[in-house]
Amino acid sequence: MNNSILKNSFRFILLVIVQVLVLNNLNLFGFLNPMIYIIWVFLFPIRKSKSLFLILSFLLGLTIDFFSNSGGINAGATLFIAYIRLPILQAVLKKSDFDYLLFNLRAISFGKAFTFISILTFIHHFIIFSLEYFSFNSYSSIIYNTLLTSICTIIISILSIILFTNKK
């Protein structure tokens, strides 16, 4: 119990620091800044209280917003993927093989985990860039940025999940 709280708080702080100090200044190919802090949303235990999860996701986004002076963009997007995480997970896995209590992202097959992460990342990035550009005229920039940054984020998220979490 305590172990899980410690683990998640540590992950929260570490992801914020890495995101803000390293990845926001990465500028891959001149403009790509992957947003890997959403790994926290993927890995948060499902059996925990749902309202706590929503509030913490909101705070995670808000912390990133504080650092990057972006209003409530990250908070809104992170909250949204936190809310739709369970329905997406239920849709990706068939309901029969969905173990509510002992769910572990590493335990499900790679293909399903990949689909789950990709869907959430695309939605998150699409909300972020739509709110940032905030105009229908720049839809081409929004889609272009969403696609490229998402690919980058998905690759880095999957690699870090494989490297830094243990398979039980």
Binding site: F58, G72, G76
Partner: peptide
């Protein structure tokens, strides 16, 4: 969810 989303949206508009 709706409440927090509204808060985030207000911050975004202000931004």
């Amino acid at each position: 969810f709706v409440l927090l989303e509204i808060v985030a949206f207000i911050f975004t508009i202000q931004h």
